[in-house]
């Protein structure tokens, strides 16, 4: 990670209360690509009978990961916000396993950034979920 992306990573994991609340850790952040881990926790469970993590927690992870990917884009954005996010759930996450998300900001225009992301547990294929989103891009003035 460069100094700039290391600072963005700190801002995301330390500065965003909800990212901290869910225990997210940025593992990689460079050139519009972000990887975040979210450890399994009982508070994230969606179905008490199975212990499977709630889809909403995966959404929060994907959203954070996508936002960080946008901020690390070489175009050096000043800020970003989610315009829309579509999440496809392929399978249930295995209870007890850390969720890893990877997001890639693959295109930016003057005011919009396009991102695709996926999340998996210890098993990479098939992923637990994939996501696709558009984000606002605020230019530094």
């Amino acid at each position: 990670m460069s100094d700039r992306t290391a600072q963005i990573a700190r801002q995301f994991t330390q500065g965003i209360p909800h990212a901290r609340d869910l225990g997210m850790e940025i593992r990689h952040l460079e050139n519009g690509v972000c990887e975040i881990e979210m450890p399994y926790d009982e508070k994230l469970i969606g179905d008490a009978r199975t212990g499977v993590i709630h889809g909403g927690a995966i959404s929060a992870l994907m959203d954070t990961c996508s936002g960080a990917a946008v901020m690390s884009h070489p175009s050096n954005p000043g800020g970003t916000a989610t315009l829309d996010l579509r999440i496809d759930y392929m399978r249930a996450a295995t209870p007890g396993q850390t969720i890893r998300a990877r997001a890639e900001c693959y295109h930016v225009t003057h005011s919009v950034a396009f991102v695709r992301a996926s999340a998996c547990d210890d098993q990479e294929d098939p992923p637990v979920a994939t996501a696709h989103g558009a984000f606002t891009l605020e230019r530094k003035s």
Binding site: H18, G55, S59, L61, D63, I87
Partner: peptide
């Protein structure tokens, strides 16, 4: 602002 992930969830 609220976290977008919170709103999604």
């Amino acid at each position: 602002a609220l976290h977008g992930g919170v709103t999604a969830a």
